[in-house]
Design a binder for these strands. Structure first.
Lengths: 219, 219
DNA sequence: TTGTCAACTGTCAGTCGCTGACATTAGCCT
DNA sequence: AGGCTAATGTCAGCGACTGACAGTTGACAA
């Protein structure tokens, strides 16, 4: 079961694999840096590949589109949230499970991000995403896809069929809506710390019930 | 204040204006028909302009992008919903105002749509929008923009500042989330009538409270 | 070490969406 | 009728993206 000179656990990838990894990372870093400084339309794929010194064709073999590289970091976060939700205790009420999944993954997510690009760079890119219509649209679609996944996980937890009982999707849709408001307000505000975002999210989630309840003026 | 020979109300537009209107309508109809039959990627702008016999340049003078023509019909709906919300009685609780704005505009919207394209064609195009990633992303962004507008209207009704009090946005985000689930389930189902959609929406909105409330298993 | 195979990369030509510049056509108005 | 101007057409070009083919370079066995 063990090749000579190779350890069981992680049989250190060959030169080829390491080279690919380096190219991919270099492309991500160069692209994000350019997006953050010159903006989305101000950056061409040719600019990116010139910075890394590979051909344009190579870029498109690593990323299906110019968009995809912009969402490299958010992608890391999405998979972790789904992961977290899957491992919540089944006894927990659905909304509570969602809330804790997002809030608890936060630190872990940021550690993972830092391994690829400085967190500060990601934040700058995030602002570009929010202010560029084409990118913002893509962001919303990705969110919708994540929500669909979360709804399915919730349904399974509760022993329901997503296509028969709409409650999982309704819950997640409402939850996701609040998340987006949080992102928006947070990134428009001054305190861009993660603690600030966490607090904001917790506060907003607490307000969903009251906001939906009815007349705000008689509160 | 009155030009000689011109009637006050609607001084029937000149030939030039009527020609423009015809060209625009022809482009919309040709485009939607093509999208519905050949799909989004299967239709080029050249195909559309060939069907109407105008130059490509003319197409882009009427529509900023290939996307814009695909959303010509949804656009009609959006403005009417905002309009309806503005004219709801101020005493009504926010969620109730939103709900009635959408449900009550329905018939009016469909009448307006029919004046441009057959409703059945629009439904076929809508399915293309939902199943084409690029179009679906654009759809979500448009929804987000409408939600922002609705949030501002709600805030004004309640005498609040949207940027200070998050409740309007939270409410609308949750509401919008439910709307999207409705659209999804409806367009995937069999009964594509408008009555079916209205019922579905009403039902789902009623379930938001319970879904958020807590443990579904002790219900 | 060497040679073979397969993976990776580069080059090139071409499509499609979209735009600016400039020339042409055609309602409009005196 | 003729001038003004909006609408349209033509053309050249950019940028994202793709398929086809050729060259290069790790991997692996003889």
């Amino acid at each position: 079961m063990e090749t000579v000179g190779a350890v069981e656990a992680v049989p250190r990838p060959g030169l080829r694999e390491r080279k690919k990894q380096r190219t991919r990372d270099a492309l991500v870093r160069a692209a994000l840096e350019l997006f953050a400084t010159r903006g989305w339309e101000g950056t061409t794929v040719d600019d990116i590949v010139a910075a890394v010194d590979v051909s344009q064709r190579t870029f498109f073999r690593y990323f299906a589109s110019k968009e995809e590289v912009a969402f490299f970091v958010p992608r890391l976060a999405e998979s972790r949230v789904a992961e977290a939700l899957r491992s919540r205790p089944p006894a927990e009420p659905p909304l509570e499970a969602l809330r804790r999944s997002v809030l608890d993954s936060w630190d872990e997510i940021n550690a993972a991000v830092e391994q690829v690009v400085p967190l500060e760079l990601h934040l700058r890119v995030y602002r570009v995403i929010e202010s560029t219509p084409a990118l913002f649209a893509a962001h919303l679609r990705r969110s919708a896809e994540l929500e669909e996944e979360l709804a399915r996980i919730i349904a399974r937890r509760e022993g329901l069929d997503v296509d028969a009982d709409p409650r999982p999707r309704i819950l997640v849709a409402a939850f996701g809506g609040v998340l987006r408001v949080t992102e928006r307000v947070w990134s428009a505000g001054e305190d861009l710390s993660l603690a600030a975002m966490r607090d904001l999210m917790a506060t907003y989630l607490d307000q969903v019930g009251p906001a939906l309840a009815g007349d705000w003026r008689t509160g």
